[in-house]
Structure formats: C-alpha cells, structure tokens
C-alpha cells in the first residue's frame, strides 16, 4: 500500500503480524510498519465484524487498534515498533477473560 523512499537509512527491525515474519525500520510505528508491508486491514469491528485499517495515523480514529505482544486495543499509530514485536489482528470485541 505504501512504499519506502530510497533515502531511508534507519536500522531494520523484525516483527511478526499474525505469525508472518516481516521487517520495517526503526522510527516506524506499528501502523506505518503494517502499511509499508502492504497490510491494509488490521482489525475487524466489534459491531459487525467488518475489516478496518489505519485511517488517520494521528491517534484520533482508533481504526488501527491491534493486539501487541498479547495486549489488545493498542493504537498502532502511537506505538513505536520494537525488534521482535508480535502484532496480531484484533478480531471483534475484546474479552475480559480469554475464551
């Protein structure tokens, strides 16, 4: 969906999205790392289960909510990507206790 400009010298970071091994750069947020890897959708809505992806990239729309290292409802556009992060699609509503 997005491609990186050639003059990006930053360090490469490895992370996973739904188990798939991916790479991005230091300085990326989780949301920008997903967009740079061609991932348009990162959650489904609690109301009707429709797919959603990053929309505003500035913390107001809450469409880029993902599960990061097991914690749900994280705003992907406000979290700096770290080496080895485990990012997962947030499917539907959160549960207080894991099913």
């Amino acid at each position: 969906m997005f491609r990186r400009l050639p003059d990006s010298p930053a360090e490469t970071l490895r992370f996973t999205f739904d188990g798939a091994a991916l790479t991005a750069r230091r300085g990326d947020t989780v949301a920008s790392a997903l967009l740079a890897n061609g991932i348009a959708s990162c959650r489904t809505t609690p109301a009707k289960g429709t797919p959603r992806g990053p929309y505003c990239l500035m913390g107001v729309c809450f469409e880029c909510l993902v599960t990061i290292d097991g914690t749900g409802n994280r705003q992907g556009c406000l979290v700096a990507l770290e080496e080895g992060m485990r990012v997962e699609t947030q499917a539907g509503a959160r549960r207080a206790v894991a099913p």
Partner: peptide, 23 residues
C-alpha cells in the same frame, strides 16, 4: 470505512514521519 481509504493528512504523516509514499 474500507481499508485503503485514509485521510490526506494520514498520507502526509506517513511521508513526514516515516518516509512512506502511497503505492
């Protein structure tokens, strides 16, 4: 609400902060 629809500001942020351009 479809994935692939973003705000123009989001594309600008992706460019400024991360050096990303829509493809």
């Amino acid at each position: 609400t479809l994935p692939g629809v973003l705000t123009a500001g989001a594309a600008q942020i992706a460019l400024k902060a991360h050096g990303l351009v829509p493809q």
